[in-house]
Design a protein around this nucleic acid. Sequence first.
DNA 1: TTTTCAATGTGATGTATATCACATTTGTTG
DNA 2: CAACAAATGTGATATACATCACATTGAAAA
Lengths: 226, 226
Amino acid sequence: MAFEICKFCTKRSIAAEHLGTDELERLSHSCVEVFFERGDIIFKQNALSSNIIYIRDGLVKVHIAGPEREQILKIAKGPTYLGIPTTFGDKVNHYSATALTHTEVCFIDIRIFKDFIATNSDFAYEIIVDLCKNELYHFHRCINQLQKQSPGRVAEALLYFANEIFNTKKYTLPLTRNELGDLTGCSRENVSRILTDFHKEGLIGLNGKKIEILNETMLGQISKNG
Amino acid sequence: MAFEICKFCTKRSIAAEHLGTDELERLSHSCVEVFFERGDIIFKQNALSSNIIYIRDGLVKVHIAGPEREQILKIAKGPTYLGIPTTFGDKVNHYSATALTHTEVCFIDIRIFKDFIATNSDFAYEIIVDLCKNELYHFHRCINQLQKQSPGRVAEALLYFANEIFNTKKYTLPLTRNELGDLTGCSRENVSRILTDFHKEGLIGLNGKKIEILNETMLGQISKNG
DNA sequence: TTTTCAATGTGATGTATATCACATTTGTTG
DNA sequence: CAACAAATGTGATATACATCACATTGAAAA
């Protein structure tokens, strides 16, 4: 890939901001940028993993085939690292990542990543912080998945898209009903019923995949209490 | 605390094995060992966290008050770190840890931990690996919690105690029925019914808290499929 | 040793949601 | 533009398990 791409990248991670000019140049030599479209698989569960994946821009679903069904672990929005646990914790992908929109991905050779950890303590520290924050997020999301009832989980998902992904109350859901079920642990029929109920109760505007949050307070209540 | 305690500790972490004599001596100055008995709270959810907790020996439940009820996230067996995510990812404990048996805990000042990360890349690398492995473990446990039915989750818990905690098919459960419910996401009545069913079906021996795995193959099947 | 309290087991009932079936709508392909 | 496939909505039914109530057993405290 073109030299200096990492040097002039405007979507660098917080950790990468701690890399010097030399390090960024070395990174450019061990980093490949690839574009994906909706539905494209970025990496596949059970495949070998020897790269660190960095989403520069776009939206990705991180998903896993569980004992009974597909589960979406997270909707990840660039810029962000994916799959660090699966590359450092094991050598095999424990989950898959699939693009939901046009997505720009950097594949980083793990060896240079390890070099940076070994030689740049600010970089290593930011990676540790990033891993820790991710784990806390997953803990809370898991607890909410386990303990809330379906309407609470669906409400939580709708608010997540509004406040964390699109930053607007009116957006187009980048998921089918089936996928929304995979994200929230419901059947697609139950998702339909809940969305229709929310619409009838005036909590959201609903037109196919177009969602509008009309009563964020009430939706927040439902989300909080299940 | 007595100098050199870390130097001659036989329960050091993999990461700590990479510390030199000087570093271990400095660690001794920023490390306090405390003993806990069953029921003692090691750290509390929502309290400030400025220490890294290292369980030298003993059994601990990591638990969180969720939207509806207590949830046990993990039964942790020494030697192991606890709460690194909660100390690096935030400054507040996101969950609690409570001793289930006599437990030996080291409280390590976070500043020296950060120093080691900054100056000892092998140490930092092992901390990253440890965080990654933990996250993968939690992912799978979460998926299993979400997708398996109650008998599968209870079977999984019984096998976890047999194979990961006690390393024997005959052991005393260190949890009440209520706590086993917190670990598996069931009510205590359902846990009782399932244990009684397993006993009636000859899968386990059951005498109060004394458990004996009689049919590991079948239990493994139930655990796997829910 | 007795009393008290916590833990546990069991039966009955209610609830949330999956599953199944099928019709309708929407998006994609030829 | 029509045909086809995927996505979606809705009704009916089944199931897993929570909840409630209460009796019994075991552990702890007086």
